[in-house]
Write a protein that binds this DNA or RNA. Sequence first.
DNA 1: ATGTATGCAAAGTATTTGCACAATC
DNA 2: GATTGTGCAAATACTTTGCATACAT
Lengths: 135, 135
Amino acid sequence: MDWNSYLKKNDIKVTRARVALLNILENVTKGISAEGLYEECKRQGIDINLSTIYRFFDLFEEKKLINKVSLGEGPFIYSLKKNKHDHTVECDICHKEIAFPCPIQHIEELLKAKVGFTLKEHKLEMKGVCEDCKE
Amino acid sequence: MDWNSYLKKNDIKVTRARVALLNILENVTKGISAEGLYEECKRQGIDINLSTIYRFFDLFEEKKLINKVSLGEGPFIYSLKKNKHDHTVECDICHKEIAFPCPIQHIEELLKAKVGFTLKEHKLEMKGVCEDCKE
DNA sequence: ATGTATGCAAAGTATTTGCACAATC
DNA sequence: GATTGTGCAAATACTTTGCATACAT
Protein backbone atom coordinates (compact mmCIF):
# COMPACT_ATOMS: atom_id res chain seq x y z
CA MET A 1 0.00 0.00 0.00
CA ASP A 2 1.09 3.51 -0.72
CA TRP A 3 1.08 4.95 2.78
CA ASN A 4 2.54 8.16 1.56
CA SER A 5 -0.55 9.24 -0.29
CA TYR A 6 -2.83 7.58 2.27
CA LEU A 7 -1.32 9.73 4.99
CA LYS A 8 -1.29 12.93 2.95
CA LYS A 9 -4.88 12.42 1.94
CA ASN A 10 -5.78 12.35 5.62
CA ASP A 11 -3.65 15.34 6.58
CA ILE A 12 -1.16 13.30 8.50
CA LYS A 13 2.54 13.93 8.24
CA VAL A 14 4.58 11.11 6.81
CA THR A 15 7.07 9.80 9.36
CA ARG A 16 9.22 6.74 9.75
CA ALA A 17 7.23 5.55 12.76
CA ARG A 18 3.81 5.92 11.15
CA VAL A 19 4.76 4.12 7.99
CA ALA A 20 6.39 1.31 9.95
CA LEU A 21 3.34 0.91 12.18
CA LEU A 22 0.96 0.91 9.23
CA ASN A 23 3.04 -1.77 7.54
CA ILE A 24 2.73 -3.98 10.56
CA LEU A 25 -0.95 -3.29 11.11
CA GLU A 26 -1.72 -4.06 7.49
CA ASN A 27 -0.46 -7.60 7.98
CA VAL A 28 -2.16 -8.26 11.26
CA THR A 29 -5.32 -10.27 10.75
CA LYS A 30 -7.07 -9.29 13.89
CA GLY A 31 -6.70 -6.35 16.21
CA ILE A 32 -3.65 -5.76 18.31
CA SER A 33 -2.93 -3.96 21.56
CA ALA A 34 -0.47 -1.10 21.91
CA GLU A 35 1.85 -3.38 23.82
CA GLY A 36 1.43 -6.09 21.19
CA LEU A 37 2.32 -3.73 18.41
CA TYR A 38 5.29 -2.57 20.43
CA GLU A 39 6.52 -6.15 20.82
CA GLU A 40 6.00 -6.81 17.14
CA CYS A 41 8.13 -3.76 16.33
CA LYS A 42 10.89 -5.06 18.53
CA ARG A 43 10.66 -8.47 16.95
CA GLN A 44 11.17 -6.86 13.56
CA GLY A 45 14.06 -4.80 14.84
CA ILE A 46 12.13 -1.55 14.55
CA ASP A 47 12.70 0.79 17.44
CA ILE A 48 9.59 2.78 18.30
CA ASN A 49 8.61 4.03 21.71
CA LEU A 50 5.43 2.84 23.33
CA SER A 51 4.22 6.42 23.77
CA THR A 52 4.62 6.95 20.07
CA ILE A 53 2.39 3.98 19.48
CA TYR A 54 -0.28 5.35 21.78
CA ARG A 55 -0.03 8.72 20.09
CA PHE A 56 -0.28 7.04 16.72
CA PHE A 57 -3.48 5.25 17.78
CA ASP A 58 -4.95 8.43 19.25
CA LEU A 59 -4.33 10.37 16.10
CA PHE A 60 -5.65 7.69 13.79
CA GLU A 61 -8.68 7.10 15.90
CA GLU A 62 -9.47 10.79 15.81
CA LYS A 63 -9.18 10.66 12.03
CA LYS A 64 -11.46 7.61 12.14
CA LEU A 65 -8.95 5.40 10.41
CA ILE A 66 -8.69 2.93 13.25
CA ASN A 67 -11.06 0.95 15.46
CA LYS A 68 -10.45 0.96 19.17
CA VAL A 69 -12.23 -1.84 20.96
CA SER A 70 -12.23 -3.15 24.48
CA LEU A 71 -12.70 -6.81 25.23
CA GLY A 72 -13.85 -6.03 28.75
CA GLU A 73 -10.49 -6.63 30.32
CA GLY A 74 -6.92 -5.92 29.47
CA PRO A 75 -5.78 -3.29 27.02
CA PHE A 76 -7.66 -1.79 24.10
CA ILE A 77 -7.45 -3.62 20.80
CA TYR A 78 -6.83 -1.59 17.68
CA SER A 79 -7.26 -2.42 14.02
CA LEU A 80 -7.11 -0.55 10.74
CA LYS A 81 -10.53 0.22 9.37
CA LYS A 82 -11.44 -1.53 6.18
CA ASN A 83 -14.78 -1.21 4.38
CA LYS A 84 -15.55 1.97 6.22
CA HIS A 85 -19.29 2.41 6.23
CA ASP A 86 -22.13 3.93 8.22
CA HIS A 87 -25.40 2.54 9.44
CA THR A 88 -28.42 4.69 10.04
CA VAL A 89 -30.74 4.77 12.98
CA GLU A 90 -34.23 6.03 12.35
CA CYS A 91 -36.16 8.00 14.94
CA ASP A 92 -39.58 6.48 15.67
CA ILE A 93 -41.06 9.90 16.22
CA CYS A 94 -39.64 12.39 13.75
CA HIS A 95 -38.35 9.75 11.32
CA LYS A 96 -35.09 11.56 11.02
CA GLU A 97 -32.22 9.29 10.10
CA ILE A 98 -28.92 9.58 11.84
CA ALA A 99 -25.78 8.06 10.40
CA PHE A 100 -23.59 6.16 12.77
CA PRO A 101 -20.18 4.70 11.95
CA CYS A 102 -20.48 0.94 11.76
CA PRO A 103 -20.00 -0.47 15.23
CA ILE A 104 -19.74 -4.03 14.09
CA GLN A 105 -16.00 -4.12 14.36
CA HIS A 106 -16.46 -3.99 18.09
CA ILE A 107 -18.57 -7.07 17.88
CA GLU A 108 -16.20 -8.65 15.42
CA GLU A 109 -13.39 -8.53 17.94
CA LEU A 110 -15.63 -9.91 20.65
CA LEU A 111 -16.77 -12.77 18.44
CA LYS A 112 -13.21 -13.65 17.57
CA ALA A 113 -12.09 -13.48 21.15
CA LYS A 114 -15.00 -15.32 22.74
CA VAL A 115 -16.19 -17.92 20.24
CA GLY A 116 -13.49 -17.98 17.55
CA PHE A 117 -15.88 -16.85 14.86
CA THR A 118 -14.61 -14.72 11.98
CA LEU A 119 -17.25 -12.35 10.71
CA LYS A 120 -17.68 -11.80 6.99
CA GLU A 121 -21.04 -10.12 6.51
CA HIS A 122 -23.53 -8.42 8.68
CA LYS A 123 -26.79 -6.61 8.48
CA LEU A 124 -27.87 -4.28 11.22
CA GLU A 125 -31.09 -2.36 11.53
CA MET A 126 -31.82 -0.08 14.44
CA LYS A 127 -34.78 1.97 15.55
CA GLY A 128 -35.24 4.26 18.49
CA VAL A 129 -35.74 7.82 19.57
CA CYS A 130 -33.43 10.68 18.76
CA GLU A 131 -32.20 13.23 21.22
CA ASP A 132 -34.68 15.93 20.17
CA CYS A 133 -37.75 13.73 20.52
CA LYS A 134 -36.73 12.15 23.77
CA GLU A 135 -38.74 14.33 26.19
CA MET B 1 -38.18 -6.21 42.37
CA ASP B 2 -37.59 -9.17 44.62
CA TRP B 3 -33.82 -9.22 44.69
CA ASN B 4 -33.82 -11.96 47.23
CA SER B 5 -35.09 -14.61 44.87
CA TYR B 6 -33.27 -13.04 41.92
CA LEU B 7 -29.99 -13.48 43.73
CA LYS B 8 -30.73 -16.96 45.02
CA LYS B 9 -31.78 -18.10 41.58
CA ASN B 10 -28.39 -17.07 40.32
CA ASP B 11 -26.45 -18.63 43.19
CA ILE B 12 -25.42 -15.35 44.66
CA LYS B 13 -25.50 -14.72 48.36
CA VAL B 14 -27.86 -12.02 49.53
CA THR B 15 -26.01 -9.18 51.18
CA ARG B 16 -26.81 -5.62 52.16
CA ALA B 17 -24.38 -4.24 49.58
CA ARG B 18 -25.68 -6.28 46.67
CA VAL B 19 -29.29 -5.46 47.30
CA ALA B 20 -28.51 -1.77 47.70
CA LEU B 21 -26.52 -1.71 44.46
CA LEU B 22 -29.24 -3.53 42.54
CA ASN B 23 -31.80 -1.06 43.81
CA ILE B 24 -29.78 1.80 42.46
CA LEU B 25 -28.96 0.12 39.18
CA GLU B 26 -32.58 -0.71 38.58
CA ASN B 27 -33.43 2.98 38.55
CA VAL B 28 -30.58 4.11 36.39
CA THR B 29 -31.72 4.60 32.82
CA LYS B 30 -28.38 4.24 31.17
CA GLY B 31 -25.19 2.59 32.22
CA ILE B 32 -23.05 3.85 35.03
CA SER B 33 -19.40 3.62 35.95
CA ALA B 34 -18.10 2.08 39.16
CA GLU B 35 -17.17 5.52 40.40
CA GLY B 36 -20.59 6.87 39.39
CA LEU B 37 -22.37 4.16 41.30
CA TYR B 38 -20.12 4.84 44.26
CA GLU B 39 -21.05 8.53 44.20
CA GLU B 40 -24.71 7.67 43.89
CA CYS B 41 -24.42 5.46 46.98
CA LYS B 42 -22.87 8.29 48.92
CA ARG B 43 -25.57 10.67 47.74
CA GLN B 44 -28.17 8.28 49.10
CA GLY B 45 -26.31 7.89 52.36
CA ILE B 46 -25.37 4.29 51.63
CA ASP B 47 -21.85 3.44 52.62
CA ILE B 48 -20.26 0.92 50.26
CA ASN B 49 -16.62 0.68 49.41
CA LEU B 50 -15.46 1.17 45.85
CA SER B 51 -13.74 -2.22 45.84
CA THR B 52 -17.00 -3.83 46.77
CA ILE B 53 -18.60 -2.21 43.77
CA TYR B 54 -15.91 -3.52 41.48
CA ARG B 55 -16.27 -6.97 43.01
CA PHE B 56 -20.03 -6.73 42.56
CA PHE B 57 -19.62 -5.90 38.88
CA ASP B 58 -17.10 -8.68 38.37
CA LEU B 59 -19.35 -11.26 39.92
CA PHE B 60 -22.44 -10.16 38.06
CA GLU B 61 -20.62 -9.96 34.78
CA GLU B 62 -19.37 -13.49 35.26
CA LYS B 63 -22.95 -14.57 35.89
CA LYS B 64 -23.89 -12.67 32.73
CA LEU B 65 -26.34 -10.45 34.57
CA ILE B 66 -24.61 -7.22 33.69
CA ASN B 67 -23.20 -5.56 30.58
CA LYS B 68 -19.76 -4.08 30.73
CA VAL B 69 -19.05 -1.64 27.95
CA SER B 70 -16.18 0.68 27.16
CA LEU B 71 -16.75 3.99 25.43
CA GLY B 72 -13.17 4.11 24.26
CA GLU B 73 -11.99 6.33 27.04
CA GLY B 74 -12.62 6.67 30.73
CA PRO B 75 -14.02 3.94 32.91
CA PHE B 76 -16.17 0.98 31.95
CA ILE B 77 -19.92 1.52 31.90
CA TYR B 78 -22.11 -1.12 33.49
CA SER B 79 -25.82 -1.81 33.19
CA LEU B 80 -28.20 -4.51 34.31
CA LYS B 81 -29.18 -6.83 31.50
CA LYS B 82 -32.77 -6.69 30.47
CA ASN B 83 -34.36 -8.72 27.66
CA LYS B 84 -31.52 -11.14 27.73
CA HIS B 85 -31.34 -12.77 24.32
CA ASP B 86 -28.89 -14.39 21.95
CA HIS B 87 -28.16 -13.88 18.30
CA THR B 88 -26.76 -16.58 16.11
CA VAL B 89 -23.92 -16.47 13.68
CA GLU B 90 -23.98 -18.95 10.87
CA CYS B 91 -20.84 -20.49 9.46
CA ASP B 92 -20.60 -20.09 5.67
CA ILE B 93 -18.87 -23.41 5.34
CA CYS B 94 -20.38 -25.95 7.73
CA HIS B 95 -23.58 -23.97 8.30
CA LYS B 96 -23.34 -24.57 12.01
CA GLU B 97 -25.04 -21.89 14.04
CA ILE B 98 -23.39 -20.46 17.09
CA ALA B 99 -25.34 -18.52 19.67
CA PHE B 100 -23.83 -15.32 20.89
CA PRO B 101 -25.15 -13.14 23.69
CA CYS B 102 -26.67 -10.03 22.19
CA PRO B 103 -23.95 -7.45 21.79
CA ILE B 104 -26.29 -4.63 21.02
CA GLN B 105 -26.12 -3.17 24.45
CA HIS B 106 -22.57 -2.23 23.62
CA ILE B 107 -23.82 -0.35 20.65
CA GLU B 108 -26.66 1.10 22.65
CA GLU B 109 -24.25 2.73 25.04
CA LEU B 110 -22.17 4.04 22.19
CA LEU B 111 -25.20 5.47 20.42
CA LYS B 112 -26.35 7.20 23.58
CA ALA B 113 -22.94 8.60 24.31
CA LYS B 114 -22.04 9.71 20.80
CA VAL B 115 -25.25 10.81 19.11
CA GLY B 116 -27.82 10.90 21.91
CA PHE B 117 -29.95 8.23 20.32
CA THR B 118 -31.96 5.84 22.47
CA LEU B 119 -32.30 2.45 20.89
CA LYS B 120 -35.62 0.60 20.98
CA GLU B 121 -35.42 -2.17 18.44
CA HIS B 122 -32.71 -3.81 16.46
CA LYS B 123 -32.16 -6.56 14.01
CA LEU B 124 -28.77 -8.07 13.55
CA GLU B 125 -27.71 -10.76 11.13
CA MET B 126 -24.19 -12.04 10.93
CA LYS B 127 -22.36 -14.49 8.72
CA GLY B 128 -18.82 -15.72 8.78
CA VAL B 129 -16.58 -18.69 9.36
CA CYS B 130 -16.41 -20.70 12.55
CA GLU B 131 -13.26 -21.73 14.30
CA ASP B 132 -13.29 -25.30 12.97
CA CYS B 133 -13.64 -24.30 9.33
CA LYS B 134 -11.12 -21.51 9.44
CA GLU B 135 -8.05 -23.37 8.10
C1' DA C 1 13.23 27.91 9.81
C1' DT C 2 9.02 26.49 11.69
C1' DG C 3 6.10 23.41 13.32
C1' DT C 4 5.21 18.78 14.44
C1' DA C 5 6.81 14.08 16.05
C1' DT C 6 9.36 11.27 19.14
C1' DG C 7 11.86 9.33 23.27
C1' DC C 8 12.23 9.17 27.94
C1' DA C 9 10.81 9.38 32.51
C1' DA C 10 7.36 10.63 35.48
C1' DA C 11 2.47 11.09 36.51
C1' DG C 12 -2.29 9.83 36.16
C1' DT C 13 -6.49 6.97 36.04
C1' DA C 14 -9.00 2.91 36.55
C1' DT C 15 -8.97 -1.38 38.55
C1' DT C 16 -7.33 -5.32 41.38
C1' DT C 17 -5.49 -7.57 45.39
C1' DG C 18 -4.05 -9.10 50.30
C1' DC C 19 -5.36 -9.23 54.60
C1' DA C 20 -8.17 -8.66 58.83
C1' DC C 21 -12.67 -8.37 60.39
C1' DA C 22 -17.72 -8.90 59.63
C1' DA C 23 -21.83 -10.82 57.86
C1' DT C 24 -24.49 -14.72 55.89
C1' DC C 25 -26.35 -19.37 55.68
C1' DG D 1 -19.28 -22.60 62.72
C1' DA D 2 -17.71 -22.54 58.13
C1' DT D 3 -17.65 -19.95 54.28
C1' DT D 4 -18.05 -15.94 51.73
C1' DG D 5 -18.28 -10.74 51.62
C1' DT D 6 -16.42 -6.25 52.73
C1' DG D 7 -13.32 -2.25 53.99
C1' DC D 8 -9.03 -0.42 53.81
C1' DA D 9 -4.61 0.47 52.02
C1' DA D 10 -1.32 -0.78 48.90
C1' DA D 11 -0.25 -2.58 44.38
C1' DT D 12 -0.91 -3.12 39.52
C1' DA D 13 -2.08 -2.33 34.65
C1' DC D 14 -2.70 0.62 31.14
C1' DT D 15 -2.39 5.05 29.26
C1' DT D 16 -1.19 9.97 29.16
C1' DT D 17 1.80 13.91 29.72
C1' DG D 18 5.86 17.39 30.01
C1' DC D 19 9.80 18.50 28.28
C1' DA D 20 14.04 18.34 25.45
C1' DT D 21 15.65 16.83 21.09
C1' DA D 22 15.00 15.22 16.29
C1' DC D 23 12.67 15.18 12.04
C1' DA D 24 9.65 16.75 8.03
C1' DT D 25 8.19 20.25 4.94
